[in-house]
């Protein structure tokens, strides 16, 4: 089951992550799930064997601050969020502009967020 979840708000993210970075937590990954009206984000951290999950939700149009300044390795999951879900990440230092894993030729942008694409009309279908 999902244990050790700490519910936070989007504005507290940077502060909390800074504390975790100081306490030598490892960043495991960032997971996004599309929910009604937005995304549910989980930041997975671990210290040794114990996990700590930070969780908050955002709307489709809201921006998430980048945690890459604290954790360099966060550029991988953050670029994935952009690719797969079209989540807007503010001040991302290493920005692949939605070309990290998907390419210009990928027929569907944001494949894991179909509702977001339908709402904004950004979905590009193959000809």
């Amino acid at each position: 089951m999902l244990t050790n979840v700490r519910l936070i708000s989007k504005d507290d993210l940077l502060e909390t992550v800074q504390e975790l970075a100081r306490d030598n937590y490892r960043l495991l990954s960032i997971t996004a799930t599309e929910i009604a009206g937005g995304f549910d984000l989980i930041y997975h951290f671990a210290q040794g064997m114990t996990m700590l999950n930070l969780r908050f939700s955002i709307g489709y149009e809201q921006e998430v601050p980048s945690i890459t300044p604290f954790y360099f390795c966060a550029f991988v999951p953050e670029n994935e969020l952009k690719d797969f879900h079209g989540i807007k990440i503010a001040n991302l230092p290493i920005n692949y502009r939605q070309l990290f894993i998907l390419s210009e030729l990928t027929p569907v942008k944001t494949p894991l967020a179909p509702r977001a694409a339908a709402a904004s009309g950004t979905e590009v279908l193959p000809e």
Partner: peptide, 28 residues
């Protein structure tokens, strides 16, 4: 370390399956 996050809503298929594989973590 392989990390799976699974979310299911009682349907016949999963709602979300996040796969974080070790190599992805070892790239940085």
């Amino acid at each position: 370390e392989l990390l799976y996050y699974l979310k299911a809503g009682g349907d016949k298929s999963l709602a979300r399956w996040r796969i974080r594989t070790p190599t992805l973590s070892n790239l940085p």
